[in-house]
Design a protein around this nucleic acid. Structure first.
Lengths: 233, 233
DNA sequence: TGTACATCAGTGAACGCGCGTTCACTGATGTAC
DNA sequence: TGTACATCAGTGAACGCGCGTTCACTGATGTAC
């Protein structure tokens, strides 16, 4: 009753269209993603896709939302939880994000690469987009609470920036002081910088052991986050 | 004699085509860059462009090479030189890279964003691509030489990674020990991570004072690079 | 300095292609009584 | 449980479009003697 046969089939086909679109994304990139090609591969006529997605952009939006949700879920699932401590959790979660990115490079590019030209992200993408950040900030929050992360460094933080940090704190980082939050943003950029440089080819001919490189970089990021003297980690 | 009138006109028109292509890139992104549209805007028939660039991909390559050269030149020009010291030089150069990126967002996306699907970068792009890295590593090299940068931290560096670092040292970082080189790669990723997150919209609704944010992050990166206790900087 | 020939830039038509989207339609599935 | 009507999924043709690239051509610029 809740779901008629027709409704069940509808969500199945919707998912199939998205799955095919995701695969085509991997081949050709987001700008070249074409409704007609997807329809062809699904085995329906191109106009039939309009029963499921009102336009190409809506299909793209669905893929973006799914990608944010997938990487967010991967990050959440990888977190070993409070009692594992900040450095271990940080390593586990960043590893998971990178693993997802390597497994789904075009989806990673879709959400963290150059914006799709002419595409305006609708509100529906905002919430899923914060899942990874939320997972990382949960680690920071717990670390502050447990005393693993302390707040005694002194890179000056300008007043305008403190306002921005207060906004983040209110949403996702209750009790995390500005100095720590600034470090959290720092390692957040480090993680995406490291993954993007690797995936977008900038380590080519520079690094051969990508795993070891990422691992080393994230260990250092972890020690910046906890503000430990790296020598003691 | 060296350059005939015809040759002079030829380089002028080549440059005009590139300039128009660059402007169109800003509007529509690299995947949508079309020879016909460029030709139209330059005021010639589409087939005439083939006198200057044998294909669309060659035009793209020219734009990529120019972009790498432009950001590389900006980085080099911003370096105040040896006697200014590592932190000041690091800040000056990273600021210049970000300023260039903000002024030329689509060109930045072209070289540091998602790779253009189906486009294979030819060898000609490799050299210009290293200019920014070379500028940054020059700072590191001088800092090691002067003693501003020391090598006493202990994030473990695996053996395979040491081989990679040796390769970098041989090319661009004579005399820089592995530990310092690993830190250099770390802050390099931080810089591109920070710029990419900002330009690709991931700080939207998070940070309002982008300048202050970047400045703060790069100060911290500078102190990681010199391995100073951030409290003493 | 003047002429004959070769090189080159730009034209315009054509090739074959794929795209997003609309629309009137058929036939199957669901709903109300 | 059976019938009449409404809803929906999918079809196939068509719209108007822009793309990259090729080709035979014209006319202007450069070169050799």
């Amino acid at each position: 009753m809740a779901t008629t046969a027709r409704a069940r089939v509808r969500t199945e086909i919707t998912n199939e269209i998205k799955a095919v679109a995701r695969r085509r994304l991997a081949d050709e990139g987001s700008a070249a993603l074409s409704l007609r090609a997807v329809a062809r591969e699904v085995g329906m006529v191109s106009s039939a896709v309009y029963r499921y997605f009102p336009s190409r952009d809506d299909l793209l939006t669905a893929l973006i939302v799914d990608a944010y949700d997938a990487v967010g879920a991967a990050a959440e699932a990888a977190d070993p939880g409070k009692r594992s401590g900040v450095p271990a959790r940080w390593l586990a979660v960043t590893r998971a994000v990178r693993a997802w990115a390597r497994a789904n490079p075009q989806e990673y590019a879709l959400i963290y690469g150059s914006p799709v030209p002419g595409y305006r992200a609708p509100e529906a993408t905002i919430d899923p987009a914060t899942r990874v950040s939320a997972a990382l900030l949960a680690i920071v929050r717990d670390g502050v609470e447990s005393g693993e992360i302390t707040s005694d460094d002194s890179i000056a933080i300008p007043r305008t920036l403190r306002r921005d940090l207060a906004g983040i704190r209110a949403l996702l980082a209750d009790g995390v002081p500005d100095e720590v939050l600034a470090r959290a943003l720092f390692v957040w950029a480090e993680m995406f910088g490291a993954i993007s440089l690797e995936l977008f080819g900038h380590l080519h001919n520079v690094i051969t052991d990508f795993d070891a490189h990422f691992e080393t970089q994230m260990r250092r990021a972890g020690s910046v986050l906890t503000a430990q003297d790296p020598a003691s980690s």
